[in-house]
Amino acid sequence: MSLLEVKNLRTHFMSRDIDNQIRVAEALNGVSFDLEAGKVLGFVGETGAGKSLTAQSICGLLRPPARVVEGRVLFDGQDLTAMPSEELNELRGAQIAMVVQNPRTSLDPLTRIGDQLVRIHQAHTGGPLTASRERALEMMTAVGIPDPKNRASAWPHELSGGMAQRVLIAMSLMNRPKLLIADEPTTGLDVTVQAQILDLLKNLTQRFDMAMIIITHDLGIVAHYSDEVAVMFAGTIVESGPVAKIFEAPSHPYTRSLIAATPERLQMGSGAKLGGQPPDLYNLPTGCHLRTRCVFAQNICTDTPPNREVGTDHFAMCHFAGRLPESGA
Protein backbone atom coordinates (compact mmCIF):
# COMPACT_ATOMS: atom_id res chain seq x y z
CA MET A 1 0.00 0.00 0.00
CA SER A 2 1.24 3.42 -0.90
CA LEU A 3 1.62 6.11 1.74
CA LEU A 4 -0.60 8.47 -0.22
CA GLU A 5 -3.27 7.47 -2.70
CA VAL A 6 -5.26 10.19 -4.38
CA LYS A 7 -8.23 8.92 -6.35
CA ASN A 8 -10.22 10.93 -8.85
CA LEU A 9 -10.01 14.16 -6.87
CA ARG A 10 -12.29 16.94 -8.12
CA THR A 11 -12.26 20.42 -6.63
CA HIS A 12 -14.63 23.09 -7.86
CA PHE A 13 -15.10 26.76 -7.06
CA MET A 14 -18.78 27.57 -6.81
CA SER A 15 -20.04 31.12 -6.85
CA ARG A 16 -23.00 33.16 -8.01
CA ASP A 17 -22.69 35.76 -10.71
CA ILE A 18 -24.48 39.09 -10.91
CA ASP A 19 -27.71 37.46 -12.17
CA ASN A 20 -27.64 35.03 -9.24
CA GLN A 21 -26.75 32.16 -11.55
CA ILE A 22 -24.46 29.52 -10.10
CA ARG A 23 -21.08 29.50 -11.79
CA VAL A 24 -18.72 26.59 -11.38
CA ALA A 25 -14.98 26.77 -12.04
CA GLU A 26 -13.78 23.22 -12.56
CA ALA A 27 -10.32 23.62 -11.10
CA LEU A 28 -9.41 19.99 -10.47
CA ASN A 29 -10.89 17.38 -12.78
CA GLY A 30 -10.12 13.92 -11.52
CA VAL A 31 -6.58 13.96 -10.15
CA SER A 32 -5.25 10.49 -9.28
CA PHE A 33 -1.78 9.46 -8.19
CA ASP A 34 0.09 7.29 -5.68
CA LEU A 35 3.16 8.15 -3.66
CA GLU A 36 5.41 5.70 -1.81
CA ALA A 37 7.46 6.50 1.28
CA GLY A 38 10.97 7.69 0.46
CA LYS A 39 9.99 8.97 -2.98
CA VAL A 40 9.92 12.50 -4.34
CA LEU A 41 7.09 13.41 -6.69
CA GLY A 42 7.39 16.61 -8.72
CA PHE A 43 4.31 18.48 -9.88
CA VAL A 44 4.80 20.79 -12.85
CA GLY A 45 2.47 22.88 -14.97
CA GLU A 46 1.62 26.45 -15.84
CA THR A 47 -0.06 28.98 -13.57
CA GLY A 48 -3.62 27.91 -12.79
CA ALA A 49 -3.04 24.26 -13.71
CA GLY A 50 -4.05 23.21 -10.19
CA LYS A 51 -0.70 22.24 -8.66
CA SER A 52 -1.11 24.13 -5.39
CA LEU A 53 -4.83 23.41 -5.31
CA THR A 54 -4.07 19.69 -5.38
CA ALA A 55 -1.84 20.13 -2.32
CA GLN A 56 -4.46 22.20 -0.52
CA SER A 57 -7.19 19.71 -1.36
CA ILE A 58 -5.10 16.86 0.03
CA CYS A 59 -4.49 18.71 3.29
CA GLY A 60 -8.06 19.93 3.62
CA LEU A 61 -6.94 23.53 3.53
CA LEU A 62 -9.62 24.71 1.10
CA ARG A 63 -11.83 27.64 2.00
CA PRO A 64 -15.18 28.38 0.35
CA PRO A 65 -15.99 28.83 -2.50
CA ALA A 66 -13.52 26.00 -3.18
CA ARG A 67 -14.76 22.52 -2.31
CA VAL A 68 -13.76 18.93 -2.96
CA VAL A 69 -16.81 17.60 -4.80
CA GLU A 70 -15.57 14.10 -5.53
CA GLY A 71 -12.70 11.76 -4.92
CA ARG A 72 -10.74 10.29 -2.04
CA VAL A 73 -7.40 11.01 -0.44
CA LEU A 74 -6.03 7.97 1.35
CA PHE A 75 -3.13 8.75 3.65
CA ASP A 76 -1.79 5.67 5.41
CA GLY A 77 -5.11 4.01 4.63
CA GLN A 78 -7.27 6.75 6.18
CA ASP A 79 -9.54 8.84 3.96
CA LEU A 80 -8.67 12.49 4.62
CA THR A 81 -11.69 13.85 2.74
CA ALA A 82 -14.06 12.06 5.11
CA MET A 83 -12.15 12.87 8.28
CA PRO A 84 -13.62 15.22 10.94
CA SER A 85 -11.68 18.48 11.10
CA GLU A 86 -10.37 17.84 14.66
CA GLU A 87 -8.72 14.64 13.54
CA LEU A 88 -7.36 16.32 10.45
CA ASN A 89 -5.88 19.04 12.65
CA GLU A 90 -3.98 16.39 14.56
CA LEU A 91 -2.55 15.02 11.33
CA ARG A 92 -1.59 18.33 9.73
CA GLY A 93 1.67 19.71 11.04
CA ALA A 94 2.44 16.31 12.50
CA GLN A 95 2.30 13.52 9.94
CA ILE A 96 1.72 15.79 6.95
CA ALA A 97 3.80 18.94 6.84
CA MET A 98 3.91 21.73 4.33
CA VAL A 99 6.63 24.18 3.29
CA VAL A 100 5.27 27.14 1.37
CA GLN A 101 6.66 29.73 -0.98
CA ASN A 102 6.82 32.83 1.21
CA PRO A 103 8.73 31.82 4.32
CA ARG A 104 8.57 35.24 5.92
CA THR A 105 4.79 35.54 5.83
CA SER A 106 4.43 32.04 7.25
CA LEU A 107 6.30 32.76 10.48
CA ASP A 108 4.67 34.53 13.41
CA PRO A 109 6.47 37.88 13.50
CA LEU A 110 5.92 38.29 17.26
CA THR A 111 7.40 34.98 18.41
CA ARG A 112 11.06 34.04 18.55
CA ILE A 113 11.81 31.25 16.09
CA GLY A 114 12.85 28.76 18.79
CA ASP A 115 9.50 29.22 20.53
CA GLN A 116 7.65 28.67 17.26
CA LEU A 117 9.41 25.35 16.83
CA VAL A 118 8.69 24.34 20.42
CA ARG A 119 5.06 25.36 20.07
CA ILE A 120 4.32 23.09 17.12
CA HIS A 121 6.01 20.20 18.90
CA GLN A 122 3.99 20.81 22.06
CA ALA A 123 0.76 21.06 20.10
CA HIS A 124 1.15 17.67 18.49
CA THR A 125 3.62 15.55 20.43
CA GLY A 126 3.43 17.13 23.89
CA GLY A 127 5.77 15.93 26.63
CA PRO A 128 8.17 17.98 28.72
CA LEU A 129 9.22 21.41 27.42
CA THR A 130 12.90 20.55 27.71
CA ALA A 131 12.39 17.67 25.26
CA SER A 132 10.70 20.01 22.78
CA ARG A 133 13.54 22.51 23.13
CA GLU A 134 16.07 19.80 22.52
CA ARG A 135 14.17 18.62 19.45
CA ALA A 136 14.07 22.21 18.17
CA LEU A 137 17.85 22.54 18.44
CA GLU A 138 18.30 19.16 16.81
CA MET A 139 16.11 20.13 13.83
CA MET A 140 17.76 23.54 13.48
CA THR A 141 21.08 21.74 13.25
CA ALA A 142 19.64 19.28 10.73
CA VAL A 143 18.58 22.08 8.39
CA GLY A 144 21.97 23.78 8.66
CA ILE A 145 21.21 26.82 10.76
CA PRO A 146 24.55 27.91 12.21
CA ASP A 147 24.78 28.41 15.98
CA PRO A 148 21.26 27.10 16.73
CA LYS A 149 21.40 27.86 20.48
CA ASN A 150 21.69 31.60 19.81
CA ARG A 151 19.58 31.63 16.67
CA ALA A 152 16.65 30.10 18.56
CA SER A 153 16.08 33.46 20.21
CA ALA A 154 16.13 35.38 16.92
CA TRP A 155 13.01 37.09 15.61
CA PRO A 156 11.68 36.23 12.14
CA HIS A 157 12.50 39.71 10.79
CA GLU A 158 16.17 39.16 11.60
CA LEU A 159 16.38 36.25 9.17
CA SER A 160 17.28 36.35 5.48
CA GLY A 161 14.96 34.63 3.01
CA GLY A 162 17.09 31.50 2.87
CA MET A 163 17.37 31.29 6.66
CA ALA A 164 13.60 31.81 7.06
CA GLN A 165 13.01 28.95 4.62
CA ARG A 166 15.33 26.75 6.69
CA VAL A 167 13.38 27.62 9.84
CA LEU A 168 10.16 26.69 8.07
CA ILE A 169 11.65 23.38 7.01
CA ALA A 170 12.87 22.75 10.56
CA MET A 171 9.35 23.50 11.76
CA SER A 172 7.83 21.07 9.30
CA LEU A 173 10.16 18.33 10.58
CA MET A 174 9.49 18.84 14.30
CA ASN A 175 6.90 16.07 14.53
CA ARG A 176 8.60 13.58 12.18
CA PRO A 177 6.16 13.82 9.27
CA LYS A 178 5.65 10.97 6.85
CA LEU A 179 4.74 13.32 4.03
CA LEU A 180 6.26 16.69 3.24
CA ILE A 181 4.60 18.96 0.69
CA ALA A 182 6.92 21.67 -0.61
CA ASP A 183 4.98 24.23 -2.63
CA GLU A 184 7.45 26.29 -4.71
CA PRO A 185 9.98 26.06 -1.83
CA THR A 186 12.68 28.06 -3.60
CA THR A 187 10.79 30.56 -5.75
CA GLY A 188 12.02 33.99 -4.76
CA LEU A 189 15.33 32.70 -3.42
CA ASP A 190 18.63 33.25 -5.18
CA VAL A 191 20.08 30.44 -7.28
CA THR A 192 22.94 29.67 -4.93
CA VAL A 193 20.55 29.57 -1.96
CA GLN A 194 18.07 27.52 -4.00
CA ALA A 195 20.74 24.86 -4.44
CA GLN A 196 21.33 24.74 -0.67
CA ILE A 197 17.61 24.38 0.13
CA LEU A 198 16.90 21.72 -2.51
CA ASP A 199 19.93 19.65 -1.51
CA LEU A 200 18.74 19.89 2.07
CA LEU A 201 15.19 18.76 1.26
CA LYS A 202 16.43 15.83 -0.80
CA ASN A 203 18.82 14.73 1.97
CA LEU A 204 16.12 14.99 4.62
CA THR A 205 13.65 12.82 2.70
CA GLN A 206 16.28 10.10 2.49
CA ARG A 207 17.45 10.49 6.08
CA PHE A 208 13.98 10.45 7.64
CA ASP A 209 12.38 8.14 5.04
CA MET A 210 9.69 10.69 4.19
CA ALA A 211 7.71 11.04 1.00
CA MET A 212 7.86 14.47 -0.60
CA ILE A 213 5.70 16.31 -3.09
CA ILE A 214 7.56 19.19 -4.68
CA ILE A 215 5.46 21.70 -6.60
CA THR A 216 7.29 23.90 -9.05
CA HIS A 217 7.15 25.41 -12.51
CA ASP A 218 10.90 24.92 -12.95
CA LEU A 219 11.66 21.81 -15.01
CA GLY A 220 15.29 22.00 -13.89
CA ILE A 221 14.24 21.35 -10.28
CA VAL A 222 12.02 18.46 -11.32
CA ALA A 223 14.74 16.95 -13.49
CA HIS A 224 17.29 16.82 -10.70
CA TYR A 225 15.33 16.45 -7.47
CA SER A 226 12.34 14.23 -8.12
CA ASP A 227 11.94 10.52 -8.77
CA GLU A 228 8.58 10.81 -10.45
CA VAL A 229 6.83 13.61 -12.30
CA ALA A 230 3.19 14.57 -12.68
CA VAL A 231 2.51 17.12 -15.42
CA MET A 232 -0.67 19.10 -14.81
CA PHE A 233 -2.84 20.97 -17.25
CA ALA A 234 -6.29 22.43 -16.56
CA GLY A 235 -6.73 20.50 -13.33
CA THR A 236 -5.74 17.12 -14.74
CA ILE A 237 -2.55 15.11 -14.59
CA VAL A 238 -1.95 14.75 -18.33
CA GLU A 239 1.25 12.75 -18.02
CA SER A 240 3.01 10.95 -15.19
CA GLY A 241 5.94 8.66 -14.83
CA PRO A 242 9.57 8.25 -13.77
CA VAL A 243 11.56 11.45 -14.31
CA ALA A 244 14.01 10.01 -16.85
CA LYS A 245 11.20 8.67 -19.07
CA ILE A 246 9.24 11.91 -19.02
CA PHE A 247 12.23 13.83 -20.32
CA GLU A 248 13.38 11.07 -22.68
CA ALA A 249 10.04 10.21 -24.22
CA PRO A 250 7.41 12.83 -23.42
CA SER A 251 4.17 11.32 -24.70
CA HIS A 252 1.61 14.07 -24.18
CA PRO A 253 1.66 17.10 -26.52
CA TYR A 254 1.56 19.44 -23.52
CA THR A 255 4.58 17.82 -21.87
CA ARG A 256 6.39 18.08 -25.19
CA SER A 257 5.69 21.78 -25.49
CA LEU A 258 6.79 22.36 -21.87
CA ILE A 259 10.07 20.56 -22.43
CA ALA A 260 10.59 22.25 -25.79
CA ALA A 261 10.20 25.63 -24.08
CA THR A 262 13.14 25.09 -21.70
CA PRO A 263 16.12 27.33 -22.50
CA GLU A 264 18.30 24.27 -23.16
CA ARG A 265 16.15 23.13 -26.06
CA LEU A 266 14.75 26.38 -27.36
CA GLN A 267 15.70 27.24 -30.92
CA MET A 268 15.79 30.99 -31.35
CA GLY A 269 13.93 32.28 -34.37
CA SER A 270 12.01 29.05 -34.91
CA GLY A 271 8.72 30.85 -34.37
CA ALA A 272 7.44 27.76 -32.57
CA LYS A 273 3.99 28.13 -31.11
CA LEU A 274 4.45 26.84 -27.60
CA GLY A 275 2.11 28.69 -25.29
CA GLY A 276 -1.45 29.77 -25.50
CA GLN A 277 -4.27 30.96 -23.34
CA PRO A 278 -4.99 28.70 -20.39
CA PRO A 279 -8.47 27.23 -20.83
CA ASP A 280 -11.44 28.92 -19.20
CA LEU A 281 -12.18 26.84 -16.11
CA TYR A 282 -15.80 28.02 -16.16
CA ASN A 283 -16.22 26.66 -19.64
CA LEU A 284 -13.74 23.86 -20.30
CA PRO A 285 -13.58 22.39 -23.79
CA THR A 286 -15.25 18.98 -23.94
CA GLY A 287 -13.00 15.97 -24.30
CA CYS A 288 -9.31 16.85 -24.13
CA HIS A 289 -8.85 20.27 -22.50
CA LEU A 290 -5.75 20.96 -24.55
CA ARG A 291 -7.37 20.39 -27.94
CA THR A 292 -8.01 24.09 -28.66
CA ARG A 293 -4.27 24.79 -28.64
CA CYS A 294 -2.87 21.38 -29.59
CA VAL A 295 -1.25 21.04 -33.01
CA PHE A 296 -2.08 17.33 -33.17
CA ALA A 297 -5.79 17.76 -32.40
CA GLN A 298 -8.25 15.75 -34.50
CA ASN A 299 -12.00 15.13 -34.37
CA ILE A 300 -11.60 12.32 -31.87
CA CYS A 301 -10.20 14.79 -29.31
CA THR A 302 -13.71 15.99 -28.45
CA ASP A 303 -14.00 12.66 -26.60
CA THR A 304 -12.33 12.37 -23.22
CA PRO A 305 -8.91 10.81 -23.84
CA PRO A 306 -7.92 7.57 -22.09
CA ASN A 307 -4.99 7.46 -19.67
CA ARG A 308 -2.74 5.27 -21.80
CA GLU A 309 0.17 3.33 -20.41
CA VAL A 310 3.05 4.16 -22.74
CA GLY A 311 5.76 2.46 -20.69
CA THR A 312 6.33 0.96 -17.26
CA ASP A 313 4.57 3.29 -14.78
CA HIS A 314 4.44 5.90 -17.51
CA PHE A 315 0.98 7.23 -18.42
CA ALA A 316 -0.23 9.90 -20.80
CA MET A 317 -3.79 11.13 -21.20
CA CYS A 318 -3.99 11.52 -24.94
CA HIS A 319 -5.71 9.69 -27.77
CA PHE A 320 -2.43 9.66 -29.63
CA ALA A 321 -0.10 8.82 -26.74
CA GLY A 322 2.71 6.63 -27.97
CA ARG A 323 1.75 7.36 -31.57
CA LEU A 324 2.69 11.04 -31.84
CA PRO A 325 5.03 11.99 -34.68
CA GLU A 326 8.68 12.19 -33.63
CA SER A 327 9.14 15.91 -34.15
CA GLY A 328 6.97 18.88 -33.36
CA ALA A 329 5.59 20.13 -30.09
Binding site: V193, A195, L219, G220, A223, A244, I259, T262, P263
Partner: peptide
Protein backbone atom coordinates in the same frame (compact mmCIF):
# COMPACT_ATOMS: atom_id res chain seq x y z
CA UNK B 1 22.07 26.23 -12.41
CA UNK B 2 19.79 23.25 -13.02
CA UNK B 3 19.44 22.29 -16.68
CA UNK B 4 16.04 20.78 -17.49
CA UNK B 5 17.57 17.42 -18.29
CA UNK B 6 17.83 14.63 -15.71
CA UNK B 7 20.86 13.20 -17.50
CA UNK B 8 22.90 16.40 -17.32
CA UNK B 9 25.61 15.85 -14.76
CA UNK B 10 25.86 18.50 -12.12
CA UNK B 11 29.35 19.58 -11.16
CA UNK B 12 28.04 20.97 -7.94
CA UNK B 13 29.77 23.46 -5.78
CA UNK B 14 27.19 24.83 -3.41
CA UNK B 15 28.30 28.10 -1.88
CA UNK B 16 28.15 28.49 1.86
CA UNK B 17 26.10 31.25 3.41
CA UNK B 18 24.37 34.11 1.68
Amino acid sequence: HLPADPKAELARHVLEGE
